[in-house]
């Protein structure tokens, strides 16, 4: 009975309920295993990363992503940077390379996860680097899209869309832009 009422409530509400974020378990560059379920109770950010993609490089050269990583992890958010290039393709990194490159850039994710097989990216329909996702403490997908609204990198006014989604969700408001078109280089999935 309760389930029926809940189902009715969902179907009657105007905005669709957030989807469950696909679960995954991936090896980190630090050798540890990272499971999404281990972070229930916390906000989780996923960042698709290819350090050789010029759009990613532009954000890191400007300190833009590092700033967001530090800000959010400082608030207890788990930030997982996913190296998603297939072996032999642009941006593929070994565990040691991933750690070294991120350290050189002053990046501060909670962990770098290695996914050369691309299966986690495909589950999330991740398309570009960067491509950002925000997951709620209950494991719901709250945001899927671009890091900001500045694809050309030349806008004077910039809205950090991931940060905005987190600010809204963490203050109990609905996320006003739950999806936006990501921009950047296509993810180098295995052919």
């Amino acid at each position: 009975m309760n389930a029926i009422i809940a189902a009715l409530a969902v179907s009657l509400s105007n905005s669709p309920a957030p989807e469950a974020a696909p679960t995954f378990s991936l090896k980190g560059a630090d050798g540890k295993e990272y499971r999404l379920e281990d972070y229930r109770g916390k906000y989780v950010v996923l960042e698709w990363w290819n350090h050789l993609c010029p759009i990613v490089a532009r954000h890191y050269a400007a300190g833009n992503i590092q700033r967001q990583q530090k800000d959010l992890t400082g608030k207890g958010v788990i930030w997982l940077t996913i190296a998603g290039s297939a072996e032999g393709k642009q941006g593929f990194v070994t565990a040691d390379e991933a750690k070294k490159i991120m350290a050189e850039k002053g990046g501060a994710p909670t962990a770098i996860l290695l996914n050369p097989a691309g299966d986690v990216g495909m589950k999330y329909k991740a398309k570009t680097t960067p491509h950002m996702f925000l997951i709620s403490p209950k494991g719901e997908l709250l945001y899927d899209g671009a890091i900001d609204d500045n694809p050309s990198g030349r806008n004077k006014e910039v809205t950090d869309l991931l940060m905005k989604a987190y600010a809204e969700a963490s203050s109990g408001q609905p996320v006003s832009t739950p999806k936006s078109q990501p921009y950047g280089c296509g993810i180098k999935y295995p052919s």
Binding site: L52, C53, P54, I55, R58, K89, Q90, C185, G186, K188
Partner: peptide, 12 residues
Amino acid sequence: VTWLACKDGCYP
């Protein structure tokens, strides 16, 4: 003029 040229990788 600015552009992004891509093949397997991309170069601005």
